[in-house]
């Protein structure tokens, strides 16, 4: 019995390592979150970091979620004190590099929510890449404080 327990325990590090090793080979998505919005607001913004550890550039082409009708990539920018927002067709994540969606810059624009989202809710997003498998990511809804932005 004792031997069995030791054997099982010795397997734990190997099990923990496996997903990590697999993840090294493909795109990794971190810090995915959605900004909590006032109840009447129909459009929300999602942010995340996409890491590309591969030798090839990766192109993010689309995103979807069962909780929203439509998702687009947008970029906020400032020009002479005027804030502008533009739709971006796709996002290129260069080889061995990462791309960050963040407030005041690039964001995923989530349109047509199915119901009000509150801080702590989790939303499944599916990201589509050119020549790569789609990636599922769980984004947490957060109420943001001014200091964090």
């Amino acid at each position: 019995m004792k031997k069995l327990v030791i054997l099982l325990l010795s397997l734990v590090p190997a099990l923990l390592l496996t997903p990590h090793l697999l993840a090294e080979e493909t795109v990794v998505i971190e810090k995915a979150w959605i900004r909590e919005a006032p109840p009447p607001v129909e459009v929300l913004a999602a942010y995340m970091v996409i890491k590309n550890p591969t030798d090839k550039d990766i192109i993010l082409t689309d995103a979807e979620s069962s909780r929203f009708k439509h998702i687009m990539f947008h970029q906020s920018m400032l020009e002479n004190g005027i804030v502008k927002m533009r739709h971006v067709e796709n996002i290129v994540i260069p080889a061995h590099s990462s791309f960050e969606f963040k407030p005041g810059s690039f964001h995923l624009m989530l349109m047509g929510k199915d119901k009000i989202l509150q801080a702590g809710d989790k939303v499944q997003l599916r990201l589509f890449f050119e020549n790569n498998e789609p990636v599922e990511v769980l984004a947490v809804v957060k109420k943001i404080e001014a200091e964090e932005e």
Partner: peptide
């Protein structure tokens, strides 16, 4: 109010 990024940041 349909501004999802810069306006809520400024309001906060």
């Amino acid at each position: 109010t349909h501004c999802p990024d810069v306006c809520p940041t400024t309001m906060t």
